[in-house]
């Protein structure tokens, strides 16, 4: 449904998008995961025909983004990061306006508006001005405005920014339902738990480049599926602990990392009793211990050397 090949977008000498390539199948929910400034919004801007690309090509539903923007616009719905609504109008009037802009009208538009308001749980607030809404309600209406014309592809640019946990849960459930109904979605976020929870496949983006693409399991397998147990002991005991740990059941390897010993093991919990016994025998107090299970954050850290929120 969406094909992106070697896409480039420059702002002066800065390459905001630097040769990104990926594909999204029909009905797929594809996540673009990366920190602020990674190039996610710029990528969405180019794909939604808002920004011209400086290199590469992209097509949606067979329509070239640069050559046939009108064809692309007929297929897509965009939910920008900002609340792109008229705050001084009520929810219903906002949706009616966006429907008319998309060429809808009459009874069909009225019905569609009522259905969407129910879908985003704003039916009771249809006549209420948007400026009086909570952050979560605004986000849901923002989403509804992107769906008013029943698009085949939906771009969701950080749709949960600035809302509380409860509102986020509601919104994510709603997006999950849309994906389940077969809508093709590109979802940008810097929250890895959202990407993990929602997306069928994820593209990890950093400094304008796609550093990894795949489903969650594929991505995590890139860094191995073992737990990592990190323990801090005096450096002169590193060799002794390494020797001991290599004999414990399930341990794959032991290495030194940033002044700590990292034990890679299939089940992190299994090494805790022998570790505790070793520490007691050596007369050492436990200074610091962490058990890290492989996830997207460790993947991102591994790929870029930085955390997602840095």
């Amino acid at each position: 449904m969406i094909i992106v090949e070697n896409l480039v977008k420059r702002y002066g000498s800065h390459r905001a998008v630097d040769g990104i390539t990926f594909e999204v199948a029909k009905g797929e929910l594809f996540g673009l995961l990366g920190p602020n400034g990674a190039g996610k919004t710029t990528t969405i801007g180019v794909l939604s025909t808002l920004l011209p690309a400086d290199g590469g090509r992209a097509s949606i539903g067979g329509h070239d983004v640069a050559g046939d923007p009108g064809g692309v616009r007929r297929l897509i719905g965009v939910v920008p990061q900002e609340i792109a609504l008229y705050q001084d109008l009520n929810a219903r009037d906002n949706l009616l306006f966006w429907g008319r802009i998309h060429g809808l009208g009459g009874k069909a538009l009225g019905t569609r508006v009522e259905r969407l308001l129910e879908l985003v749980a704003l039916g009771e607030h249809a006549r209420q001005k948007v400026e009086t809404f909570s952050g979560g309600m605004k986000r849901r209406l923002n989403l509804a405005a992107g769906l008013i014309h029943n698009p085949e592809v939906l771009f969701l640019d950080e749709p949960t920014v600035g809302i509380d946990a409860q509102a986020r849960t509601k919104l994510l459930a709603l997006i999950g339902d849309l994906a389940a109904d077969g809508l093709t979605i590109i979802y940008t976020t810097h929250y890895l738990e959202e990407a993990e929870q929602l997306c069928h496949r994820i593209g990890v983006i950093d400094q304008g480049r796609m550093v990894a693409v795949g489903d969650k399991e594929d991505l995590i397998s890139q860094i191995g599926d073992e737990d990592r147990v990190r323990v801090q002991v005096p450096s002169e005991r590193h060799r002794a602990l390494t020797s001991a740990a290599e004999t414990w059941p399930g341990v794959d390897s032991v290495s030194e990392r940033r002044g700590k010993l990292e034990i890679r093991v299939a089940d992190g919990g299994a090494v805790l009793p022998p570790l505790q016994a070793w520490l007691a025998a050596e007369g050492l107090d436990l200074a610091q211990l962490e058990v890290i299970r492989p996830n997207l954050e460790t993947l991102y850290l591994n790929l870029t050397g930085r955390g997602l929120r840095e």
């Binding site: 808002l50 792109a84 008229y86 705050q87 966006w98 014309h149």
Partner: peptide, 15 residues
């Protein structure tokens, strides 16, 4: 322009 309603208009079916 600031609230991005213009961007939403540009990406709509309207020319």
């Amino acid at each position: 322009r600031r609230q991005r309603t213009l961007a939403r208009l540009v990406t709509s079916r309207a020319g």
